[in-house]
């Protein structure tokens, strides 16, 4: 059987906020290592990869690998019934056709029990090649969210450019253009700071669909910082860490010259 108890149930609520608008349903793969889910948006432009390692849970048992085929709209509706400080337990049999969700209030005076029916989902899994990224940028997640929102007013494309000590976001459209630059801060240990790491100090500039970047920022509440990894002619990686034991990552194909 499979049983996973998450003291900080809000993590699951926040993670699903970052998933549900991009992927309608997905296979949540449960193994002794934890829970993982990957899926592409219907246009196959963005890949979402969620990893929740077993250490994230205060109780975790998975005797045999279990696949939970979940409709994310339904999953989200049920998770909205949980309070932010509820403890959430997921349970399933070995070859399940349903998954049990148990919500316990922090002071244990209320328990809610839900059953979600599982669906068979036939989806392809993508192999992500090991890539040496030309640039790795860490910025406050709220700042990234704001920049994506602000630049979306100018057009459907956001250009991300990294040069030594600086990351620049720009957009151009019929109403005008915008350019927002963030400089690297001195002390990079602080979550409020910006860090820019480059391989060989070669500037890197790529264009992305602003619509998808805005979908990714729905995960902002998962982490104070977001990491962007860029490489010429490669998908952008946008990562939100879930403490030390999980992550929600997005891969977005760049717009390229025809």
């Amino acid at each position: 059987m499979f049983e996973a108890r998450l003291l900080q149930g809000s993590i699951l609520k926040k993670a699903l906020e970052g998933i549900r608008e991009l992927i309608t349903s997905g296979n949540w793969e449960c193994s002794s290592a934890g829970i993982s889910m990957q899926g592409m948006d219907p246009s196959h432009v963005a890949l979402t990869v969620l990893m929740l390692q077993n250490d994230l849970f205060d109780q975790f048992r998975c005797d045999r690998n279990v696949t939970l085929g979940l409709n994310h709209a339904t999953f989200s509706k049920i998770l909205k019934c949980a309070a932010n400080d509820d403890i959430i337990t997921l349970k399933a049999e070995d070859q399940p056709d349903e998954c049990n969700l148990l919500f316990q209030s922090a002071n244990d005076d209320k328990t809610s029990d839900f059953i979600i029916k599982l669906t068979d989902i036939d989806q392809e899994t993508l192999g992500i090649p090991d890539t040496e990224y030309a640039a790795t940028v860490k910025v406050p997640s709220v700042e990234f969210q704001r920049i994506c929102r602000d630049l979306s007013q100018f057009g459907d494309t956001i250009i991300i450019s990294v040069k030594k000590g600086c990351v620049e976001f720009s957009g151009t459209g019929e109403i005008g253009s915008a350019k927002i630059a963030l400089k690297e801060s001195g002390n990079v240990d602080d979550d409020e700071k910006v860090s820019v790491e480059m391989d060989k100090d070669t500037p890197c500039s790529l264009s992305f669909a602003s619509r998808y970047l805005n979908y990714f920022t729905k995960a902002t509440s998962l982490s104070d910082t977001v990491t962007l990894q860029l490489c010429p002619e490669h998908p952008l990686v946008v990562s939100y860490d879930i403490g030390d034991n999980g992550s929600l990552k997005y891969y977005l194909a760049p717009k390229i010259e025809e």
Partner: peptide, 14 residues
């Protein structure tokens, strides 16, 4: 003019 390719251009299917 820039176009939007799908991820299959960059990633392989397992």
């Amino acid at each position: 003019k820039k176009v939007q390719p799908t991820l299959s251009r960059f990633f392989t299917t397992k």
